[in-house]
Design a protein around this nucleic acid. Structure first.
Lengths: 344, 344
DNA sequence: ATCCGGAGTGGAACCGGTTCCACTTTTGTA
DNA sequence: TACAAAAGTGGAACCGGTTCCACTCCGGAT
């Protein structure tokens, strides 16, 4: 357990001052004679010298690190998102410190404090909706914040990257309407969240465009955490006049909703047409494979990283950006035209 | 974007020296008069002071951070594992820096260098199998390394936490044998990995115990990356005498294997009994729900964290630990007795 | 009354980088 | 040939914590 060489060891071995070594390490910071540069690089190689990140951070006042704050990684959507973000970040030489919130504002607050201690230069997060003051303070302290997937209305001046929630919901609803469905169930996220309400609004807009009434009893807004999706499915199908089609627009509740449908032996699509949000790989392994709204995770990740790093380098104009990427409807076999005679 | 207060600001405001503030922050490091302690705490609260992690790390020589190095988070097994690890680490006040390797030793080497720069005090990893010297150097530099899920044979003195691979494979094979199957296909990981070979050996042992011959043409060892599972399934079922049961013991290939089975319209379990490794939530959403070997992720995570932190605090005896946790067989509906008459 | 030990305190060095500045050596140009 | 500008260099301060050490009190034991 010998200790690692420092910049002074390198300087001594190369017969130069630490300033020179530092300049070799950060070329923009000043000139170095070619011969000395070679020699220093040789010594660095020979000694296996690597600069300590902590020292640089202390001196620079901020770390080449970003925080990634998501609900939980057991949700495949966030897992795949995290995967892409870690990957993109690495390609820019930035490390990612990961924190999960379990949708709990207290844990979120904790995470933010910790990230602040670490002097991260940016945070990519799916906010729980709370901690408004904390987010604001974070940004005031010079941390570049980008919300991904969800927004917080009160924080207009924070960058947001999400899919076209309104549009996606509207289009999937329209698709079902075009198949003849008039009673379409909707399971969405909490209406206090931007995704939850935007998707509900898209659903409503589709009805309005088709001059269909919106039956509020067909709408379920359920939390992201827990298994409320199953309950919502149960109560929808137990209605006197159950829906003939269902959109699960709450990504986190898809699994529990489908589980319930399987348990109930619901015949899809003959008894119920189904569209779920997000193309989890397993959605094509069910019987039948599910029609989905595909969220382009790569795009979300790339935009988020670019925003954070762009702001870090001061390369972006001031105002907040709201980037919405398009989410495609991917038809598989869980939607069928409504055959009136077969309606019970 | 005002700047955050430092320990000297606190000291000045409280009318004490920095040493006193530092001792208030780290009680073990020395005595402080109760009155002053109160006053310092008050000022800290008032100023919203938080110690900079970088400064502490620089001084301490190591960070309260561990690195988590996994293949990729789009594999649900690793995602759920990462989720548990992040969670456990947080409960011990430790942050996690996440890196992915895509099973590529070069990326792994890169990750290790980066983690070393960050002076992490521990690393939890699913090693690719390469970089043996690098791992050794890491450990020599005082970084506590714990391998999870897989081991590297050459590194006998590194802690390992995994499931009972041999046992799990043996038991699932025995279960299929007890149902009357004699031609059991096996899709496992690369034989150069500990999981790949241990599971194969368990499979063989079950055959030996039952005095059944092992037909090597029924065995497929495929890489973790890519979609080789589908190909393996295809070639197994295309055999003149195809297997009547199949064990997919390569966690990363389960999805692609099942996808192929679905595409081929294979009747499970009548045509083929199926057991797959790891209880991904979606395995109960297929038709039929799949019988699985359940890996207790929580246990893996808890043990890994405890090993890393235990070593960090020097609370553990010297020798390397090899912890194997039991993985249960969870029967669902994808296994059926072999009905001889129905065999083609 | 004297001495000893421990509680309590502040000063200053240290961790390992970056950066500013003063200084010397080239180089280019009038 | 003279002199300004640019290239190249090293010293030292600085980032914000931790820790060692010397020093001052104080109570209790002798």
């Amino acid at each position: 357990m010998r200790k690692a060489p420092t910049i002074r060891d390198v300087a001594a071995a190369a017969g130069v001052s630490v300033s020179v070594v530092s300049r070799v390490l950060n070329p923009e910071s000043g000139p170095v004679a070619p011969a000395k540069r070679q020699e220093v690089l040789r010594v660095i190689e020979e000694l296996g010298y690597r600069p300590r990140a902590a020292a640089r951070e202390l001196s620079a006042g901020h770390a080449l690190t970003i925080g990634l704050v998501v609900t939980d990684l057991s949700n495949p959507f966030f897992a795949r998102l995290a995967d892409r973000i870690v990957w993109e970040a690495r390609s820019h030489g930035v490390q990612v410190v990961l924190m999960t919130t379990q949708e709990d504002p207290h844990l979120e607050a904790d995470s933010l404090d910790t990230l602040l201690d670490r002097s991260v230069s940016g945070v990519i997060a799916t906010p729980t909706g709370g901690n408004i003051e904390k987010w604001r303070r974070l940004r005031d302290l010079g941390v570049n914040v980008v919300f991904i997937d969800r927004a917080i209305e009160e924080l207009e001046d924070v960058d947001v990257v999400s899919i076209e929630n309104f549009d996606s919901a509207q289009r999937s609803t329209e698709h079902l309407i075009s198949l003849g469905h008039t009673r379409i169930g909707l399971i969405t996220g909490p209406l206090s969240t931007s995704t939850g309400s935007a998707r509900l609004n898209g659903y409503k807009a589709a009805h309005q465009n088709a001059s269909l009434p919106v039956d509020p009893t067909l709408i379920r807004d359920v939390p992201f955490r827990g298994d409320a999706g199953g309950g919502a499915v149960g109560s929808l199908l137990a209605m006197r006049q159950p829906p003939t089609a269902l959109i699960v627009a709450n990504t986190a509740q898809v699994q529990s909703s489908v589980r319930r449908l399987v348990q109930m032996g619901t015949d899809i699509p003959d008894e119920l047409s189904l569209i779920v949000f997000d193309d989890n790989p397993w959605t094509e392994l069910t019987t039948p494979p599910l029609s989905v709204i595909r969220q382009p995770l790569d795009m979300l990740a790339v935009h988020a990283i670019e925003l954070v790093l762009g702001r870090m380098h001061g390369k972006l104009p001031d105002g907040a950006r709201r980037i919405e990427v398009k989410a495609d409807y991917l038809p598989r076999n869980s939607c069928a035209p409504l055959i009136l005679s077969s309606a019970r």
